[in-house]
Design a protein around this nucleic acid. Sequence first.
DNA 1: CGTCTCCTTGAATTAGATCAATATGTGTGG
DNA 2: CCACACATATTGATCTAATTCAAGGAGACG
Lengths: 234, 234
Amino acid sequence: MSMQIAITVDHGPAALASFPGMPWMLASSTAGLGEAALAQSKPALRFTQDSPIYDEGDKAKLVYKVVSGVVRTCKFLSDGRRQIDAFYGAGEMFGLEIGSAHRLCAEAVSDCIVIPYHRHGLEQLAATDGQFARQFVSYAMRCLARAQDHSLLLGRRSAVQKVAAFLLDLSERSAGDDVIDLPMARHDIGDYLGLTIETVSRTMTQLERDGVIAMPTARRIRLSNRLALEDLNA
Amino acid sequence: MSMQIAITVDHGPAALASFPGMPWMLASSTAGLGEAALAQSKPALRFTQDSPIYDEGDKAKLVYKVVSGVVRTCKFLSDGRRQIDAFYGAGEMFGLEIGSAHRLCAEAVSDCIVIPYHRHGLEQLAATDGQFARQFVSYAMRCLARAQDHSLLLGRRSAVQKVAAFLLDLSERSAGDDVIDLPMARHDIGDYLGLTIETVSRTMTQLERDGVIAMPTARRIRLSNRLALEDLNA
DNA sequence: CGTCTCCTTGAATTAGATCAATATGTGTGG
DNA sequence: CCACACATATTGATCTAATTCAAGGAGACG
């Protein structure tokens, strides 16, 4: 079911600035100039778990920012298998494209709220505001760095190394907390790491047996031995 | 051996514009404004096969454009294994970073000539010239798209699919020619696709047996049945 | 003509996938 | 609150694609 309800959310400058871990523009620099105009371009949208936000090939007229929840971008193969390209959490942007169409699809991992912006508006703003444009580039380059790291992970690492890196990455994203609440299912983790759910599960129980992590519940992970996790990836 | 000789090459606007398949700026838009200033910032450099251009962690003060030959960017793991992130051919740029240091190392796949530009100069130009800045973003986004495709390839494809996709990509880069002259060794192909040299070799001979490709020599591939190759990836 | 590097091929091994079953929730209606 | 259905997660038993280990070829170059 593709539940998509337009709701009213305060997303003026103040609200935007309050999102934690803001990785991108719209936070500080352009609070005066573009912010207001852009923020009011569209109401926030709510998506229920697993509902599509846009599909591969859809016209890419909007760019999104996550307010709450988690979004995944992915591609499907003809045989139904899926590769998840990235997860996006609160404050992160997704959906920006170089061409006219989306190259990946986006789906709600959990129930989530996102704010859509007109891509055209962003581009115009970037064209007139130099500082904004620089943040634009910076954002793209950071995405690129992430994608490169992901490639390295997928190409030359064992299942344990992949899972370890994934957990460390998640921990880092939640301010380095040792306890992680996984917003996504094993299936998602597998499709992100290029593994099956069974291998993900087995690997995690093995890490638990080795005392490297603890799993109070399937969705809650405690990094009991962060050093050991880091050592796995060298 | 790290052979790196400064040589004099005509790389003024005319020479630059003549590189085929120019994927980036400096070609058309800024021929008047920034081009001349940037082009004269440094003499072209020659690197011999397998010599390093920069290392992971080096200060990223320069950005490079390939004049001739092929360059690879890669990361090394503690166990000595290597993941090649990308290959860059004539006219392509590499070495642009978001932070102060290079996140990958760059090496000459074949003997090659590259032109270094001052990153600072590019950034300044981007700050003053809107059109240049837009091409800058466009370049970063295209790199991102490539990296995402690469992730998909590494995560969820079999050896044959990887090799097939690689050959098709190479062909596309050389204007869709059915005959490809591989500039890189099997080792490089393996490290790019997340496979061993043996698997790359076996896979290619299998493709040859199936009549999908022909290999007059190890480094020359003819795509005899492009359709079959494309079908492999669906 | 030998040496070195790169490529191919073969046999044995293994990490991870697949197939199949059981467990652990989690929400629903009685 | 319990019983049931349904999702998601774990665990076990094979199977297989790709790696690893080990020889041979085939060019390139002095």
